[in-house]
Design a binder for these strands. Structure first.
Lengths: 148, 148
DNA sequence: AGTGAAAGTGCTTGTGG
DNA sequence: CCACAAGCACTTTCACT
């Protein structure tokens, strides 16, 4: 489905989408229209879901990250996820195997804001309790694009 | 530092960077060159760190996500982070407050690959143990851009 | 800082191999 | 599936407000 050239293009575009097609073509040894054709195909296939910017995490005045693991009972996780989606501070939401059935990543300006958020989460039906891990440092974030 | 128009532009570009400057200008009531000027300023200020693509998580044949919380002793977290960076399956790496001093997000093709990775992590000096949470569902991932 | 017009550049499409 | 060439749209710059 995806050959090596496709994977190289994905890796290159992941680094910087504003590379010229001619530049990409030189690297993968293809002409600009050929690169264009492949990229469009990746878009249509849904492999490339969208073109976005990476924003400096601290530029927006939100300095506090935390992971919260939720202990859930009775209520389906998907239903809780819909409620959590309405809290703008909740940036990621997962279901997981284990005692804590859900895990979220939250992003707030201050500890006080985090406390308010946790208060709201505590009141959600089905949430029996949670464990919070404050993030002290983000060492790296990246994406793994295997070339096989 | 960042006014409301800047934040709107960031939110719009986050959704789709291939919007035309004229299109952005209509929304924020500015001319294309004015939008251009602001975007360049955001780039120079480091608020916009880069332009990337979003890749469908399952398109690359990696179907298994897991969070691993590491119990660390003796060794500085930053040193462990450098070692973890050499494992391509480790996509995110954080230091956190609490009993488990570090937390990583890993992305592998199969449970067998995950096991091999955990074996390697287990052998790292300073890693006393870890707890693994397999991700069953990713409900949402997004970014919070406050408009204040 | 923002506007308007003009120039430059790369994207995009059609034709052909 | 890819290379070549041309039309076209957008980005980018410049002079001015």
């Amino acid at each position: 489905m995806l050959d090596e050239i496709d994977r190289m293009l994905l890796a290159l575009l992941k680094q910087d989408t504003r590379r010229k097609y001619s530049e990409l073509g030189e690297i993968v040894h293809l002409s600009p229209p050929a690169v264009h054709e492949r990229v469009k195909k990746l878009e249509r296939a849904g492999v490339i879901r969208g073109y976005t910017i990476e924003i400096a995490p601290d530029a927006l005045g939100l300095s506090l990250y935390a992971f919260v693991r939720l202990r859930v009972s009775r209520v389906p996780c998907e239903e809780l996820a819909r409620t959590l989606h309405t809290f703008s501070e909740v940036e990621e939401c997962y279901s997981s195997a284990g005692t804590e059935s859900m895990m979220i990543k939250v992003h707030t300006a201050t500890p006080a804001t985090l406390e308010l958020l946790l208060d709201r989460i505590r009141q959600m039906p089905g949430v029996e309790g949670f464990q919070t891990s404050i993030v002290l440092a983000t060492h790296f974030q990246r994406e793994n694009i295997p070339m096989d």
